[in-house]
Simulated assay, not measured.
Amino acid sequence: MLFGTTDNYSTETTERLHIDLAKEAYRATNRKDEYGQMTLWLERCEKVLQHSDYVRWRLNTPPRLPSPIPNVTYPFYLKMVKHPTKKSVSFADLSTHYGTHNLEELLTWFLLPPMPLHKTVA
């Protein structure tokens, strides 16, 4: 209040957000228990946007993964400790001391599975 408003200050941005996030969300409700429905609608819109960003990212950048993935046998159960004895262990140390060969490649494959190739029709 002492120095007045900042240069180029406008409420246009927050008004636009109010229209997008509140008014459109309200229009999507049945006017009963609006708050819960609006919140659910906004969460779904955000998830759709995140998924479309992920798909766009995956289609533009082909994964650089080893092919084929080596055969791996998995135990029938997995025992996990609540508190690890070491933190921030390198992949090389894991391979040397714990016998986790190809962990980096397999983890990459698990997080970024290969995308199927699409043929474009001219």
Rank of each mutant, 00 (worst) to 15 (best):
M1Y: 11
L2D: 11
F3K: 13
G4E: 11
G4P: 05
D7P: 02
S10E: 12
S10I: 12
T13F: 15
T14F: 05
E15K: 13
L17A: 07
H18G: 06
H18D: 10
H18M: 06
I19H: 11
I19V: 06
I19D: 09
L21F: 10
A22G: 01
A22K: 02
E24M: 15
Y26M: 03
R27L: 14
R27D: 10
A28R: 04
A28N: 03
A28Q: 02
N30C: 01
N30L: 00
R31S: 00
E34T: 04
E34F: 00
Q37S: 00
M38S: 06
T39R: 04
W41P: 06
W41H: 13
W41T: 11
R44I: 15
C45Q: 15
K47P: 02
K47S: 01
V48M: 15
V48Q: 15
H51I: 03
H51Y: 09
S52G: 01
S52C: 14
Y54T: 06
V55M: 05
V55F: 05
V55D: 03
V55E: 03
R56N: 02
R56W: 10
W57V: 13
R58K: 12
R58N: 08
N60Y: 11
N60F: 12
T61Q: 02
P62D: 14
P62L: 13
R64Y: 03
L65A: 09
L65E: 04
L65Q: 06
P68Y: 15
N71L: 10
N71F: 12
Y74T: 07
F76C: 15
Y77H: 08
K82N: 14
K82I: 00
P84A: 04
T85Y: 05
T85I: 09
T85G: 08
K87V: 15
S88P: 01
S88H: 14
F91M: 08
F91K: 02
F91Q: 01
A92E: 05
A92K: 10
D93H: 05
D93R: 10
D93K: 11
L94A: 13
H97G: 02
Y98H: 15
Y98I: 04
Y98C: 05
G99S: 11
H101M: 10
H101S: 12
L103G: 01
E104M: 06
T108G: 02
F110S: 05
L111M: 05
L112H: 13
P114S: 07
M115A: 04
P116N: 04
L117Y: 10
H118F: 01
K119D: 03
K119F: 02
T120I: 12
